[in-house]
Amino acid sequence: MAYNLKESTTKPERLTGGHRMCAGCGAPVVVRTILRALKEEDHAVIGAATGCLEVSTFLYPYTAWKDSFIHSAFENAGATVSGAEAAYTAMKRTGKIDDTYKFIAFGGDGGTYDIGLQSLSGAMERGHDMVYVCYDNGAYMNTGIQRSSATPKYADTTTSPAGSVVPGKQQFRKDLTTVMVAHGIPYVAQTAPMKNFKDLYEKAEKAIYTPGPAFLNVLAPCPRGWRYETDRLMELCEIAVDTCFWPMFEVVNGEYTLSYKPKNKRPISDWLEAQGRFKHVAKNPEVVAEIQAEIDARWERLLKLCGEEA
C-alpha cells in the first residue's frame, strides 16, 4: 500500500517516550519511523550496538522498546542479531515457536562504519533475514564527539580538533553504503528523515520485508555534535540532501535507483555554514571548493550508477 502519513499514525508506537536521548536528537526520529514500517501483527527483535541510542533507551530498569530488545556490545550488533535470527529459524523449524518475527539491528556510525564493520559484513554475507540500520551522525557522539570514518572532512571533533595547524578531520568520509552494495545483498538504501517521511518509511518497509539481509544508511543529525540549535533537525536533513552531501538512493539486487534529485542543487557552503563544527573552514574559499569538488564527483558517480543525466 502506498505510503500515507495519516494512515501510518494508526500504527502502534514501538519506541516510547521516556528515553534519555538528547532533546532534538535525530536517531529516535529515524527509529520510530522504521518501526512504524513493521506490520502491526509482526513481532520484532531489535538489537543495538552500544551507543547513544542503546544506552539512552535501555537504562536499567527502563526500556523504551515495545519489542524484545537485545544489546550485548559495541562492535557486534550484526553478529548478535544474526544469532537471534538463527535461533528463530531453528525454533520455528522445530515448532518451538510459531509467531512471525522480524530482526532489526541499529548501530551508530561508530558501531557500523568502524568497530562493528566486520560483524556487520559477516551477518550480511551469511544472508540472515535481518535489517541493519546505521543511524549516521558522523562521529562517536556517545563518548563525546570523536571522529569516525563517517565524519566529514574538516569537521571539528574532539579527536580531530580544529587547531592552528590542522583544521579538523583530514579525510573525506568512507562511503559505507557502497561497501554494503558490494556485499551483493538484496536491498541497500540510503535515506534521511525528509518532509512527510515517505522515503524513509518506504525504504524501511522494503528492507524489513525483503527476504534476506538488508542495509539502511540513515542520516541522523546530532545537534550537540554538529553544533546547531535543536529545533533545526529537519532543516539540517533537507540541506544535507539538497546539497547532495547525503543523496538518497536505493540498490535493489544491485540495481541503483536515485530516490530524489534536487531541482536546484544547493552549494555545499549551505551545509558547512549551518553547523558549528565547520565554523573554522566554512568561509575559506579553498576549503569550500575542495569539498564541493568531492561532493560533485561523488554525486556524478552516483548519477551514472543510477542511469541519470547529470
Binding site: 502519513l5 495519516k6 494512515e7 501510518s8 499514525t9 494508526t10 508506537e13 519506541l15 516510547t16 517516550g17 521516556g18 528515553h19 536521548m21 538528547c22 532533546a23 532534538g24 536528537c25 535525530g26 536517531a27 529516535p28 526520529v29 520510530r32 519511523t33 528523515p193 512527510n196 517521511f197 533537525l233 529537519m234
Partner: peptide
C-alpha cells in the same frame, strides 16, 4: 513523525495534544 520523544499525541489520525510528560 519528527518528534524524537513520541510526544505528539495522535488519535484517530488527528493531532490531539502534546505529551508534556516526555516532551523535552
Amino acid at each position: 513523525p519528527v518528534c524524537p520523544d513520541s510526544s505528539i499525541i495522535v488519535e484517530n489520525k488527528k493531532m490531539t495534544g502534546i505529551d508534556y510528560d516526555h516532551c523535552k
